[in-house]
């Protein structure tokens, strides 16, 4: 009996510990594309990488609390076609980011546009055929 219980416990432990999603690169389902959020923040990192570039920035709320946001864009090839580059942002720059937030409420989203300190706007959908095509 004991021989049967121990493997069963090990299996149950395994299920509990690994039943969380093996999360990874995602489709469009993670985003609330009906909701657009606009944020003013300070760049902390611009990560030019595949499969998606990541823009990290801090947003100070009305209560003075800082929330760290991460916005993703398309891959570097598509972003280059849309006029973006590895040097599009500098750490410490004040930017205004419009994005589609993720559905689970975390400070993450898919970038639509970014307005730079000089007023120039970078369009993340340029070079794509829209949100659906934005993979």
């Amino acid at each position: 009996m004991r021989r049967k219980i121990i493997p069963a416990l090990i299996l149950a432990f395994g299920i509990v510990n690994f039943s969380g999603p093996l999360l990874a690169h995602h489709g469009t389902a993670a985003f609330d594309t009906d909701k657009k959020v606009t944020l003013k923040g300070t760049v902390t990192e611009w990560f030019w990488s595949n499969p998606h570039c990541l823009l990290q920035f801090d947003v100070k709320g009305d209560n003075g609390q800082v929330v760290h946001w991460i916005g993703e864009t398309q891959n570097p090839v598509t972003m280059t076609n849309g006029g973006w580059s590895k040097t599009s942002f500098k750490v410490g720059e004040e930017i205004t980011v419009a994005l589609f937030p993720v559905k689970n409420g975390l400070p993450l989203g898919r970038i639509i546009t970014v307005v730079l300190p000089d007023g120039k706007m970078l369009d993340a959908l340029k070079g794509t055929s829209g949100v659906r095509d934005y993979k």
């Binding site: 993670a30 985003f31 998606h52 990541l54 991460i70 993720v102 975390l106």
Partner: peptide, 8 residues
């Protein structure tokens, strides 16, 4: 940074 937290 992004794929896992945005999906779960």
């Amino acid at each position: 940074l992004f794929g896992d937290p945005s999906s779960g």
